[in-house]
Design a protein around this nucleic acid. Structure first.
Length: 674
DNA sequence: ACCTTTGTAAACACAA
DNA sequence: GTTGTGTTTACAAAGG
């Protein structure tokens, strides 16, 4: 169909439509921005505070008691160098107290857990965490103890060195000093806790009431604990080089706290604290029979016992079993080691989870990137590639030139296919100014543009859209659906790196298009003139393009029927399923919404044309005729969008309902390729 | 071969 | 006179 001399129409129409434009023409196609402040509240603090508080109180209480009792059983065997001073009992306070309230797992329980696997992993974790919390306390107490010892020593030294005040005074002084020291330690403790929390090493669940200070090892004396842990940890250390984070290592440090500086404890992670509960104590010598059965024993390999830290050589499986039973029976040590192992596993799991998360993020990121600019859009790309390819031979269907531009991480689902990127002829276009022409491509849908948005923003690639389509897009993107010429220019430069050069040329083209096409209506404004889009007109002119592919048409037809309802579904499916090449999840953003409408409109337009078109003599189209066009337009949804056939195609393909995709997908590509 | 679409170039008109 | 905006015309390429 010939275009009518738009001149008259247009020229006359200076005020043609929209006198209502409202006069303001500050249309900026603004992109929505969401500022998001993520507030993350550390739940931990509270818990820590509580803990510290309780501990303080308990410590004070204990101290008082001890002072009164003064010399009492210090026989906590294994305690290192118990000071000879009578007043030292205080030193052990924490420990003894700790033993008073065992909240730890008993050996039997442990056994159960280990052997019967009564607990689910989750339960185990919870358990572990609890135990860890207890351990932490124990560690803190040990720290206390140390401090107290030092304090005592200091006091004693002072006493001895200096004159000898009356004993009463001494006692009083001592008490005072001790209490002060205690307070200091408590403060330290608090700080310690806080720092732990800050580092994320210590997690105290808000819901959990402050943990009692003492629940340490049940029935286990510090010395034993220390010893055990030393063993355990040392073993681990040898085995695992993983690094500081490793619970086992941390444990070591912390556990051995008696000898190690408190600082080390910082390293420990929440889990590490678990040690405390070594409590499991009653030595039960039951063999871990359950494990023995399997021949491919996880603890046995290459003639070596793989028990953490063991590495004992066992000729055969039998000897290994023997070894296992004798050396790794269910005793405190084994239990402790087991626990450590649990922690290790837990740690690893955590790490794994984190890494998984990271991986996910990375994939998402990359995916998006890839898809975003290019992959997803491919549909267009096809087209575009075609377009572009002409000059160059980049033809690979998907090889839309694509530079890794900034990804706008849209919602892209990870699912999308591998992004295809090829920079191949990207900039090639250079010399030749390709004409978009390609059959399929002509009009772009907003969606299309959106999809490739990021890509074109950064790559100096000529967008495979016609000026008319771009102009329309620019206008439609504006809040008021109208733009001044200059604003259109700006949109071009903003959205396409390609249009940052040769301004004279493309600007001329833009103006030319605005004037030439009836679909662009100039509206006089107080402030000047703005351009709007007459969708009807716009649609009028795209018919032909579709003609090319029978399959396309087919798609269209079928899609047509679903058209309306399709919108939502289509969008969703496209976004979520990442429909084949094209779709886009990438587009996710703003324009996604337009897609549907665009599709609809395109369909309408296409359909209408196809239907009305006499041209469809081609065999492929036959089906079309049968179909009756449904006027999408009538739908209230998005009146404004209408797009080229291409987009239609694209979209249509994606729609889950049709299979045709392939056919039609390929066709364009192939043709282009050649 | 003809027609249409699209892109490009350029001439011209007009208003600020 | 310059510049920006619009309109037109002409032409070429591509595809139907």
């Amino acid at each position: 169909m010939m275009q009518e001399s738009g001149t008259e129409t247009k020229s006359n129409g200076s005020a043609i439509q929209n006198g209502s434009s409202g006069g303001n023409h500050l249309l900026e196609c603004g992109s929505l921005r969401e500022g998001r402040s993520n507030g993350e509240a550390p739940a931990v603090d509270v818990g820590a505070a509580d803990l510290a508080h309780v501990q303080q109180q308990q410590a004070l209480q204990v101290a008082r008691q001890l002072l009164l009792q003064q010399q009492q059983q210090q026989q906590v065997s294994g305690l290192k160098s118990p000071k000879r001073n009578d007043k030292q009992p205080a030193l052990q306070v924490p420990v003894s107290v700790a033993m008073m309230t065992p909240q730890v797992i008993t050996p039997q329980q442990m056994q159960q857990i280990l052997q019967q696997q009564v607990l689910s992993p989750q339960q185990l974790q919870v358990l572990l965490q609890q135990q860890q919390a207890l351990m932490l306390q124990q560690q803190l107490q040990e720290f206390y103890k140390k401090q107290q010892e030092q304090l005592q020593l200091q006091l004693l030294q002072q006493q001895h060195a200096g004159k000898q005040p009356k004993e009463q005074q001494q006692v009083a002084t001592q008490q005072l000093a001790f209490q002060q020291q205690l307070l200091q330690m408590q403060q330290l403790q608090q700080q310690h806790l806080l720092s732990l929390q800050r580092q994320g090493l210590l997690t105290i669940q808000p819901g959990q009431p402050a943990l009692p200070l003492q629940p340490l090892a049940q029935g286990m004396i510090p010395a034993e604990l220390q010893q055990l842990w030393k063993e355990v940890t040392s073993a681990h250390t040898a085995e695992e080089t993983t690094g500081n984070n490793h619970s086992s290592l941390d444990l070591t440090t912390t556990c051995v706290s008696s000898s190690a500086p408190s600082k080390t404890s910082l390293i420990m992670n929440p889990h590490a604290s678990t040690n405390g509960q070594l409590s499991v104590h009653t030595p039960k010598r039951e063999s871990l029979s359950h494990e023995e059965h399997s021949h491919s024993h996880p603890l046995y390999g290459h003639g070596v016992c793989k028990w953490p830290g063991c590495e004992a050589v066992c000729e055969d499986f039998q000897s290994f079993l023997k070894h296992l039973n004798s050396e790794h029976a269910l005793d405190d040590r084994s239990t402790a080691q087991c626990r450590v192992q649990m922690q290790v596993v837990q740690q690893l799991e955590l790490q794994l989870a984190k890494d998984k998360e990271r991986l996910q993020a990375m994939m998402t990121h990359l995916h998006v990137k890839s898809t975003e600019p290019k992959a997803a859009p491919q549909p267009l790309n096809l087209v575009s590639s075609v377009t572009l390819s002409k000059s160059a031979s980049e033809a690979s269907p998907q090889s839309l030139p694509h530079t890794p531009t900034t990804p706008t991480a849209p919602i892209t689902p990870v699912t999308q296919g591998p992004s295809v990127i090829t920079t191949t002829s990207m900039h090639t276009v250079g010399p030749i100014r390709r004409r978009y022409s390609d059959k399929y491509n002509v009009p772009i849908s907003s969606a299309d543009i959106a999809q490739n948005q990021e890509f074109y923003k950064n790559a100096e690639v000529r967008p495979p859209f016609t000026y008319a389509s771009l102009i329309r897009q620019a206008i439609l993107e504006s809040p008021e659906k109208q733009l001044t010429l200059n604003e259109i220019y700006n949109w071009f430069t903003r959205m396409f790196a390609y249009f940052r050069r040769n301004a004279a040329t493309w600007k001329n083209a833009v103006r030319h298009n605005l004037s030439l096409h009836k679909c662009f209506v100039r509206v006089e404004n107080v402030k000047g003139a703005v351009w709007t889009v007459d969708e009807v007109e716009f649609q009028k002119r795209r018919p032909q393009k579709i003609s090319g592919n029978p399959s396309l048409i087919k798609n269209m037809q079928s899609s047509h029927a679903y058209c309306t309802p399709l919108n939502a579904a289509l969008q969703a499916s496209m976004a979520e399923n990442s429909i084949p090449l094209y779709t886009t999840a990438s587009m996710g953003n703003p324009t996604l919404g337009n897609l549907a409408s665009a599709i609809r409109e395109e369909l309408n337009g296409a359909m209408e044309h196809t239907n009305s078109n006499e041209s469809d003599s081609s065999p492929g189209r036959s089906p079309m005729q049968a179909v009756h066009p449904v006027h999408v337009k009538e739908e209230p949804l998005d009146p404004e969008e209408a797009e080229g056939p291409l987009s239609l195609v694209t979209t249509a393909n994606h729609s889950p309902d049709f299979d045709h995709d392939r056919d039609y997908e390929d066709e364009p590509v192939n043709e282009d390729m050649e």
